[in-house]
């Protein structure tokens, strides 16, 4: 398993639109991608589950990637967070 931490800078947090793009991105990878916050965890393939975490600006998210190609996948997802969130 590979993990990274990220603090959200987007002013509305993980809102619907980037969450939707994240889901599309996650679906391209065979590895399991999980978002963990102080409130709980969600599978990155599930839009409603991600939104239900209610991640706001300044919240820290831990992203865990495990399975096939996990190193490379984690890098792609980390890049996604930096660009969009």
């Amino acid at each position: 398993m590979v993990a990274f931490h990220y603090t959200i800078t987007d002013e509305v947090g993980i809102h619907a639109r980037p969450a939707g793009i994240l889901v599309q991105e996650a679906k391209k990878h065979p590895a399991t991608i999980t978002l963990k916050t102080a409130k709980g965890s969600a599978d990155a393939r599930k839009l409603l589950a991600i939104m239900s975490l209610g991640v706001k600006q300044g919240d820290e998210v831990t992203v865990e990637v495990s399975g096939e190609n996990e190193e490379a996948t984690a890098q792609v997802i980390e890049e996604f967070f930096k660009t969009n969130l």
Binding site: A16, R17, G20, V23, Q24, D43, R45, K46, L47, L48, A49
Partner: peptide, 16 residues
Amino acid sequence: AQIFEVHSMLLEDEDY
């Protein structure tokens, strides 16, 4: 207009 793209994505949500 992006809200309607998001609506499509919500409709495809696994949990839903």
